[in-house]
């Protein structure tokens, strides 16, 4: 077999077996099903990335065309309804799994020494996920999206003193317009995903370095 001879050659140069040992072949404490929520969230994120990239193939972020392009995805393109369906419901499920994951960590006290930074990056990931939800909600440019975002940005505008400024910065002007759509689009497909990917990197590095927490015993 060629692969039998290829593998040592590649391994010598790429260090595959080293990676395998540190990531997959490590011992972890015996835990329960609640500890699968983190990887479930990671899985959902990966699915959101794939379906999101697919949606961007046809989607146009302009007030004139955004709605039409999504109608086209839903009715004109083969399996467009499936891709958008997975993206839509995946977003909902991801918020749920992120939140439950946080509750699990809280109730098992897993945020305590030595996992403080893992927790902090996790909270930032939760916020970034909500940011994804908020910016993604506007993109279909339908009635629900338009009015929910109008109200959502107004909430930010209620901050005393600088509220008006924040409102204008979020909307890119006084009104919800094509400028708002463009910047929400950019935030949704570039800024938040990059932040999330970087944070996931730190989060997972720490999970592997420190190991997942064990279920606390009564004397702990």
């Amino acid at each position: 077999m060629i692969s039998k001879r290829m593998f040592p050659w590649l391994d010598e140069r790429l260090g595959i077996s080293g990676i395998y040992k540190t990531i997959f072949d490590r011992m972890v404490p015996k835990v329960n099903w609640w500890f699968t929520l983190g990887s479930a969230t990671l899985f959902l994120f990966a699915l959101q990335v794939v379906t999101g990239i697919m949606l961007s193939v046809y989607y146009v972020p302009s007030p004139d065309k955004a709605y039409d392009s999504i109608q086209y995805i839903m009715n004109g393109v083969a399996f467009g309804w499936l891709i958008r369906g997975i993206h839509h419901w995946g977003a909902t499920l991801m918020v749920i799994t992120v939140f439950l994951h946080m509750l699990r960590v809280f109730f098992y006290a897993a945020y305590k020494y030595p996992r403080e930074i893992t927790w902090t990056t996790g909270v930032l990931l939760l916020l970034a996920t909500l940011g994804m939800g908020f910016t993604g909600y506007l993109l279909p440019w339908d009635q629900k999206a338009y009015w929910a975002t109008t109200v959502g940005t107004s909430i930010a505008g209620a901050v005393p003193g600088i509220g008006d400024f924040i409102l204008r910065a979020l909307r890119g002007g006084n009104d919800l317009s094509g400028v708002t759509l463009a910047r929400f689009f950019s935030a949704h497909i570039w800024m938040f995903p990059l932040i999330i990917i970087a944070l996931i990197g730190v989060h997972l590095y720490l999970v592997i370095r420190i190991g997942i927490s064990s279920i606390p015993k009564e004397n702990e």
Binding site: V57, G76, V77, A78, F79, L82, I83
Partner: peptide, 9 residues
């Protein structure tokens, strides 16, 4: 489906 989606037009 992704392949179908991409070549659909």
């Amino acid at each position: 489906p992704v392949i179908g989606y991409l070549i659909s037009p």
